[in-house]
Structures are given as structure tokens and as C-alpha cells.
Write a protein that binds this DNA or RNA. Structure first.
Lengths: 270, 270
DNA sequence: ACATCTGGTATACAGCATATACAGGGAGAG
DNA sequence: CTCTCCCTGTATATGCTGTATACCAGATGT
């Protein structure tokens, strides 16, 4: 993937000379987006930041849409792993939490999330990670896929909420005030919203629960209920997914065969 | 709210004469967005559709952002209600389903959902509806708010997925093929994604579960678990939320007092 | 009768993505 | 060495976008 010639050129070329690169363009785009949001990423701005003309970019990138695709997948690539496995629930939680952290670092990804989303290798790697975690529950394959989709979309949605909130708070100082200021015009029609009124008066909006933490526990509870209903009490091999027939004595088996045990060991070692 | 003069003008002016209106502009914007997506809504296009010049719109609307806000709230206004109450779970499900249906009708709302979202009266009305449903569970106020947020965001997220899928399928004919076509380049690196490979081979992607139906049941299950843990076995008044002390004989009480019973009756009647 | 306001128009400008034409430099062929 | 061709970067132009500014006709108020 990483052309070594280009990489050294990228690492050592520094100041601006050394010619234009795909990598340099993508990096400049990401920096711009991290700092000022996706809307600030225009071909002009990216080119300016690199000291070239607008059209020079088109020698390396087909168009803006593709640039954004590349930016997304590249940004994904710099993420850490989740540590040692501790059961599907803890692992899924860790996966979700790292996803949130990721969106926090690159909020602009949320702005372009609705669009077509051509999956790059790094994006697929995250998908694989989640599939492996959830597959260990023993759910049926289609259910595994659905669960991963559910959690993934939940993270995206919650991140959108959290990021938006912090952005507004940072921009308007307090934030809460502005929100309730806009609500002032509502107070005249409050009789039309009796439940809203009651919940407001009971302080339901004073200290809102963290939407990510709250929602995540609900979603995981829901998945747990599904597992309880669907999965017979069989342990399954983390490598191949086959049912493991339980050992009658001694330490419970974790793999269905020596082959899978070895495979897991090798994978763990690299 | 609805200026009768303007409304009659709007209803009877028909063909194009009768002058420009806020309502006509907003309606034209919605029609355009429904047909061609939010990206197609430009001041020029809206004006053309009405037979006026671009700048004429600015006599009635401060700018495009405000026009979109108005479009959103107006679109929300034409939605049906949910029928008679049948318990929090069925009601929440109905609310979510109507939300999905709404997004299906106006997919462009999803494109502008991430943004600041100034809440209009109709949007608040939907919020009130959901609050009333969830408040009947007896959860604490902050929890009620969090649950409504969770379900609302889930609907938005699932709708995005569903709408996107149908759009791609409609545009590219089959859709599935295109998706797996893009995956062709992946097959060379499949050894890097063992779980993905296994799930694919087991048919986990062949007949994907409906993300809305699947996710909704998980989310509701999670909420149900929360209620089971949090709520003592007390029935609560749907009007004021107070605890109802149970009737020892006869039909179970639904309201905490005659006053609330009457209030509910009056509200139901209008 | 005159001023002011309202609603619609025409023109202009800055920003955007990108198509097209062109220029210099390096590589390879004759 | 020269000629050609490709690769890379540039300059210019087109057609979008939102909107500022200036103008103009007609209605209304005084």
C-alpha cells in the first residue's frame, strides 16, 4: 500500500518542495477538516495550504468526493486497539467507546456520514473487529451483522449528539442558556404541551443523562436479552464459531479443536 | 399562527398570480426537496418554480438556512396521530414507526438533521407526544427524556440506513450487486478478515435483517429492562404522573383522581 | 401632492467544483 | 543531439451557489 518512495518523500520533503502527493493532499484535507469542519474543505483551501494552485490537485485526485473518501479512511487508520478480550459485552462497550473517541477527534466524519460511504480497508478492519466480538456470542450470522450495525449506528448517532452539544457550548459560551432562550417563545403555548411542562418543572432537563452512556447500556441490555432468548447454552469457538462440546472435568474448553487453538495463538502473537 | 388572509390567498390564488407568500415559497421548497433531494433546493430553483426572480424570495425569507428550518417544521405538520393508547411499548413502537414513515416521505430531512435544528412548534408537538408515552412508564423525568432521545435518534439513524438503501437500489437497479462488486478488490485480502469471511460464507449477508425492525426490538427490550429494574410496581397517572394507590376490588384505576380523569376525558374529546 | 413603504427586478460579486488549453521538464527513441 | 511524448503544475473559463446593492412601479399615509 504505502509506496516507500512516496513515504520518504512525504516524511523528509517537509517545507513544501518535493512535489505534490496523494498523501500530502489527504493529510492537508484532514488537518483542515479537523480544525474548521468539513465545510471548510474546498479544493482551493487545500491547494493554498500546500502552496499550489487549485487545479494541481486534480493531477492526483479525481475529484472532491474521492478526496473525502480517502480522508475518511486515512483518518480511521490511526486508531488504537481495544486491549485483551473480556467477554462480548465489555468488548462491545470498548469498541463503542473507541468509536466515540474517534468521532470526537474527527467530528467532520459525522457531516459526511449520510452519504454513500465507499468502505476502505481501515473501515473494514473496524467492522471485522466488531464482527469478531459479537460472533463470540453464538448468535446466528445475520443477527451478528444486524447487532454490529445497530451498535455502530448508535455510536454514530450518539457521537453526533455529543459533538454537536460540545460545539455549541464552546461557540456560545454557556449553551444551555441559549437553548432555553429559544424556548422563551414556547412558554406562551406551554398549555399545549402538558407532559413537557411537567417534566421540565420536575427538573428532567436540569441534569440530562449522558446520551452515549445511557443509550449504550440500553442497547447492550437489549442485545443481552436477545442472546438470552436465542442462544442455547453452548459455548462456541471464537475462531470458527462451531459449538464446543463441554469438557466434563478440568478447565472449560475455549476452542473446538487443537487447530483452532493454534490458530488463535498465532493470531494473538502477531 | 395561520394568517387566514394568507391562507385563503394560498388556497385560492392557485395558478401563480396573487403574489408571493411565505407559504408558497416553503411549499415549493418542500416539493423540490421531496422530488430531488435537499441539494436541489437552491434559491434560484425555488424562485423559478414559482415564476419569480431569485431575489424576490428575500422579501419574504431572511436566507436559505431559515427557509430550510421552515421547510422542516412545515413538513412535520402534516403527520397523522397514533391511534388509541395501548401501553408504553406498543405506543413507542407506533411512534417510532410513524417517524420512519415520515422520513420515508421526506428523505431530505435526514440530510439536514445533523445541523443545529431550531425546534419549531410541530417538532415540539412530536416530542411532547413521545414524552407522554414514555412518562407513563413511571421512569424518573431525566430518564424519560433520555429514553425519548434514544428512540428518536435510533429512528433517525435507521431511517437514514433504510432510505439510503432504497435510494441506491433504485438508482443502480439491483444494488446488492454493486455492493458486492466493490467488495471484489477485498477478496485478495480476505485472510486479513477471518470473521468477515466466515460470516459471509455462512450467508450472514444474504438476507439481512431489517435494521429498523431488528434494532427497534433491541432498543425496546433494553428500555424494558431498565423499567423492570427502576420502577417499583406502581401504576402511575397518565395525566399528572403521581402514583395511583391500587383499587382492591373491581376495575384497576387508571387515574389518580377524578380531576385527572376528567382532564384526560376533556383532552381526548378535543 | 409628496414622502414613505412594499414587493419584485436586474446586476454584481465572491465562492465553489471542474473542463479545457497550455507550459516546462524529464525520459526515451531515432 | 534532436524530436516526441508524458507527467506535473498553471491559467483561464464556465456554470453553479448565496446574497449585497441599486433600482423601479405601485400602494399607502399624511
Amino acid at each position: 500500500m504505502a509506496n516507500p518512495e512516496r513515504s520518504t518523500e512525504l516524511l523528509w520533503g517537509a517545507k513544501g518542495r518535493g512535489g505534490l502527493n496523494l498523501e500530502r493532499i489527504v493529510r492537508a484535507g484532514i488537518e483542515l477538516a479537523d480544525a474548521e469542519g468539513l465545510a471548510a474543505v474546498s479544493m482551493r483551501r487545500v491547494a493554498e495550504r500546500l502552496g499550489y494552485t487549485t487545479m494541481s490537485l486534480y493531477r492526483h485526485v479525481p475529484g472532491k468526493a474521492e478526496l473525502v473518501d480517502l480522508m475518511r479512511d486515512t483518518a480511521l487508520g490511526t486508531e488504537p486497539d481495544l486491549g485483551p478480550p473480556r467477554g462480548w459485552r465489555a468488548d462491545t462497550e470498548a469498541w463503542a467507546r473507541s468509536g466515540l473517541e474517534f468521532y470526537r477527534r474527527h467530528p467532520w466524519l459525522l457531516e459526511s456520514a449520510g452519504v454513500r460511504h465507499v468502505p476502505g480497508p481501515n473501515s473494514i478492519a473496524g467492522f471485522e473487529q466488531a464482527l469478531a466480538i459479537v460472533a463470540a456470542t453464538g448468535l446466528r450470522p445475520a443477527q451478528v451483522v444486524a447487532v454490529v450495525g445497530l451498535v455502530g449506528h448508535f455510536v454514530e448517532s450518539a457521537a453526533r449528539e455529543v459533538v454537536e452539544t460540545t460545539r455549541i457550548e464552546r461557540r456560545t459560551g454557556v449553551g444551555h442558556d441559549e437553548w432555553w432562550g429559544a424556548r422563551d417563545s414556547l412558554y406562551q403555548h406551554l398549555d399545549r404541551y402538558p407532559t413537557l411542562t411537567r417534566i421540565y418543572e420536575e427538573g428532567g432537563f436540569d441534569e440530562p443523562l449522558d446520551p452515549f452512556e445511557f443509550g449504550l447500556q440500553r442497547v447492550l441490555d437489549g442485545i443481552e436479552a436477545l442472546i438470552r432468548d436465542e442462544v442455547r447454552d453452548e459455548t462456541r469457538c471464537a475462531v470458527c464459531g462451531k459449538v464446543i462440546d463441554p469438557a466434563e472435568t478440568g478447565r472449560p474448553r475455549a476452542y473446538c479443536s487443537r487447530a483452532c487453538q493454534q490458530k488463535a495463538y498465532r493470531r494473538r502473537k502477531v
